[in-house]
Design a protein around this nucleic acid. Structure first.
Lengths: 134, 134
DNA sequence: TATTGTTATACTCTATAACTATA
DNA sequence: TATAGTTATAGAGTATAACAATA
């Protein structure tokens, strides 16, 4: 049982996430927070449930995640006017600056991974193969 | 920040592990137990610490893992005669049969992943790229 | 009655520190 | 003193059920 796809996937992911964590120490965010902020930056005003579903995060856990980001002044929940049950989520001005800084560190991180892979062509190959698995 | 390697790695891993879990419901084992049993089958008599290190598992957690496998009668700890502090780990006869069954289910699982990827050539490509990341 | 967000909670994984028995 | 295995425990990450407000 030598060539276990799942086993190598896991070990590769551990390596990439470790590099991610070290890279983002200065900003003090974790992968889930990173991807939430990036998504909010792309699609401002999404409802919490939409956000959670898009990121594959449990809605109940999205609450805690957004609580943290809101406490740090990076995002803002606004009651929707059309459906007062739901909260639309936006970046604050500070949050927008924060996402800028995120982008710089993220490029460093991705560059290191691309170097490990051997180049952009290999990166694109890998991404294509991973998408087939998903 | 569209092409995040870590993000796709994680989602691919979640998919593969989900298929793994469903596949191995009949045997009632989890990925860590699977890889431990496979390793013990390959290298009988390894010490706990060697096993843990080889699999990237914390030695303290390896204790609990082996406790479970021993309680189910699949593995056996024997005090080493040369160093009585250490335990060498072996499959029982039942454990050897169990590993045979594991092998069958594992081939089903891997076959499904290879089909998703589009063939063995693509599988080999993926494994090569993952090894570069590790 | 169904849905959004929330709270509380529980389970798995992982990591660390302190202990024992042996070396 | 150092090491192998153990125990207890604490922190993430993830999942479910029950609830209030609103639809």
């Amino acid at each position: 049982m030598g060539t276990a796809i799942g086993y190598l996937l896991r070990r590769a992911q551990v390596q990439v996430f470790q590099d991610f964590s070290e890279t983002f120490v200065p900003l003090g965010i974790r992968p889930a927070e990173f991807s939430a902020l990036a998504r909010i930056a792309e699609c401002a005003g999404q409802r919490q449930t939409e956000l959670a579903e898009g990121l594959g995060i449990n809605p109940a856990n999205m609450v805690t995640l957004l609580d943290g980001l809101e406490r740090r002044g990076l995002v803002e929940r606004r009651k929707s006017e059309t459906d007062r049950r739901s909260h639309s989520v936006y970046l604050t001005d500070e949050g927008a600056k924060f996402v800028q800084q995120m982008g710089k560190l993220w490029r460093d991180h991705e560059t290191r991974q691309v170097e490990r892979l051997g180049g952009r062509a290999e990166r694109d190959q890998l991404l294509a193969l991973l998408k087939r698995l998903i």
